[in-house]
């Protein structure tokens, strides 16, 4: 029993610690790449070429004073960042980094991820409400409405992929892409899924919840020190999770580009990481280049464009699979 617990704790740590390090270097990559796009240097003082900058930022946030607003609902206020952080970590339990390289290989893996991402709204909405501040509340309401509406189209796109695979298991979804990655036959879905992932993680150009000019910083205005750090880490870990979900669903997870000699020498987690990096760079690139959407345009895009389009493509995929007798099983 004790051995079992120790083994499991070690397994979990071996996922969580690299994840947190990659989140830290994601923020550094964001600042460096945005600097390059805007012809600046980015952070380059601490460590060699600024490589220790995220650690210094973390230390700064850790050493700051935690301020609790006097009119806040304290229990909910303290609980909200913890919830966001925990939910962004537990999704990684089912992500396969290679064949069999995952903590739990459950049959309903993709539903589990979908459930976790739909629970993510609660951290935001409770933090906005419990802060007892108008900026935070407006940011939280915007964010919750946005996440709920884009989840619908994400659901349809996932069903589309699952129809082609015949299983909810993430490993089987990747293995089904051995002959062709799903980004080729389901190309429109791939684009829509990534745009919905941008909206789901409240990133540019859909960063309405933290529109600096109107709402200061959205739902997390009243948070300082570690509370803010937990939101920040949760947000970036969620971005990585959505990137890896896009990789698994459409870019063939850990599969090499071609299954021939020089490509399949590279170990599978490296392929997974390389594919994940494409989306990480895209996240940053979009942030540096695209202007923010207006709120009604955002809602129109979600409900009047993506929802009908994904529903229509789902019907199209299903009818193609049935009529050519391509249905799995």
């Amino acid at each position: 029993m004790l051995f079992f617990i120790i083994i499991n704790v070690l397994k979990i740590l071996s996922i969580v610690v690299p994840l947190l390090i990659s989140v830290a270097y994601f923020t550094l990559a964001e600042r460096k790449i945005m600097g390059a796009i805007q012809r600046r240097r980015g952070p380059n003082v601490i460590g060699w070429a600024g490589l220790l900058q995220p650690l210094a930022d973390g230390l700064k946030l850790f050493a700051k004073e935690t301020i609790l607003p006097s009119n806040a609902d304290l229990v909910v206020f303290v609980f909200a960042p913890m919830l966001t952080f925990i939910l962004s970590l537990i999704g990684w339990a089912v992500i396969p980094f290679g064949e069999g390289l995952l903590i739990s290989d459950i049959q309903v893996g993709i539903l589990y991820l979908f459930a976790i991402s739909s629970l993510g709204v609660y951290g935001i909405i409770t933090s906005g409400w419990s802060s007892n501040s108008k900026y935070a509340f407006l940011g939280a309401l915007r964010s919750a409405a946005q996440m709920v509406s884009y989840e619908v189209s994400i659901g349809f796109i996932i069903i589309c992929v699952v129809l082609c695979v015949g299983s909810f298991n993430l490993t089987e979804i990747v293995l089904a892409q051995k002959s062709i990655w799903f980004c080729v036959p389901l190309f429109p879905m791939f684009i829509m899924f990534f745009i919905s992932a941008l909206a789901e993680t409240n990133r540019h150009p859909f960063d309405l919840p933290e529109a600096e000019a109107e709402l200061v910083s959205g739902y997390n205005v009243e948070y300082s020190a570690m509370g803010f750090a937990l939101f920040f880490l949760g947000e970036y870990a969620n971005m990585l999770l959505m990137s890896s979900l896009t990789t698994i669903l459409f870019l063939g997870g850990w599969l090499p580009l071609f299954d021939i000699a020089p490509f399949n020498w590279i170990p599978s987690p490296v392929w997974f990481g390389l594919k994940l990096c494409i989306f990480v760079v895209l996240f940053i690139w979009f942030r540096a280049t695209l202007p923010r959407y207006r709120y009604d345009q955002l809602m129109t895009l979600g409900w009047k464009v993506f929802l009908p389009l994904s529903l229509g493509y789902l019907l199209f995929t299903a009818s193609m699979l049935v009529s050519f007798n391509w249905l799995p099983n």
């Binding site: 309903v108 539903l111 979908f114 459930a115 739909s118 509340f137 409405a145 709920v148």
Partner: peptide, 25 residues
């Protein structure tokens, strides 16, 4: 019954209760 349980979370907690919370707030 993991399918039903996840559906319970997705539908009741992820969609219905969010809207409920929205209205109450």
């Amino acid at each position: 019954v993991e399918f039903l349980s996840l559906m319970f979370i997705i539908i009741y907690v992820g969609a219905i209760a969010v809207l409920f919370l929205f209205v109450v707030m």
